[in-house]
């Protein structure tokens, strides 16, 4: 009986309540542990992902870089809208990103940024659109979600630390924090069942390890008089 059912159970059209919802082909994130908990085994390529940050500087962008590198290698455009800081070209190039594919949009007016985000999400050639916007308007978010679906674009709405984290319509919501020296990804919302425990990822082999003992600390910084 179980043997006869087995081929049926793997059929993509069959969804079981205890499983993640079946998803169209997703974009592998480059982290096996993260892919395992994301619906479709990767970043959604047709939906908005909302990422909440506890702090900046915990490796939040490095989490997305392997997927961006892949997209750029497939000649899909990457658009960053209103990033909070100046992106550093040598660091991006060192990660393997083809800079010719990256467009950074800076807007003086928030409406323009939203417009640009929607256009980018809707554009078929655009593979990923990231926006750092404080928008919480449900109608706007739904519009963005529809745009991402129509354009088959991976849209990420970044929430900077301290921003209100109200429930939104984004089908995938993650909260990032550093826990025990690693990047912890809390899946707040996904298609399918909830995930109780965060996924911990070791991000970058090049990053020097954090000294464990006081004696290993090369130099502790104090204000020198």
């Amino acid at each position: 009986m179980a043997a006869a059912l087995a081929p049926l159970l793997v059929h993509p059209a069959l969804w079981r309540g205890d499983d993640l919802a079946p998803q169209p082909a997703a974009l592998p994130s480059g982290f096996a542990a993260l892919d395992a908990v994301l619906p479709g085994r990767g970043w959604p390529q047709d939906a908005l992902t909302e990422i909440l940050l506890e702090r900046e500087g915990i490796g939040e962008l490095r989490l997305t870089l392997p997927a961006l590198v892949q997209l750029a290698a497939r000649h899909r455009d990457i658009v960053w809208i209103a990033p909070p800081y100046q992106p550093c070209a040598p660091a991006l190039a060192a990660a393997g990103l083809d800079l010719a594919r990256l467009y950074v949009v800076t807007c003086k007016v928030p409406q323009d940024a939203l417009w640009a985000f929607e256009q980018a999400l809707r554009a078929p050639r655009c593979g990923a659109a990231f926006a750092w916007l404080p928008t919480h308007d449900d109608r706007v978010l739904r519009r963005l979600q529809v745009a991402a679906r129509d354009g088959q674009t991976w849209g990420v709405l970044w929430r900077r630390p301290g921003e209100r984290g109200s429930a939104t319509t984004a089908p995938l919501r993650l909260a990032l924090a550093r826990e025990e020296g690693q990047l912890a990804v809390h899946v707040l919302k996904r298609r399918g069942t909830d995930l109780a425990h965060p996924v911990r990822l070791a991000l970058d082999g090049r990053m020097p390890p954090r000294p464990r003992n006081a004696s290993d600390i090369p130099w502790q910084v104090h204000e020198t008089a």
Partner: peptide, 9 residues
């Protein structure tokens, strides 16, 4: 050497 992804203006 390692460079950060964000630079402050």
């Amino acid at each position: 050497t390692l460079r950060p992804l964000w630079l402050l203006a």
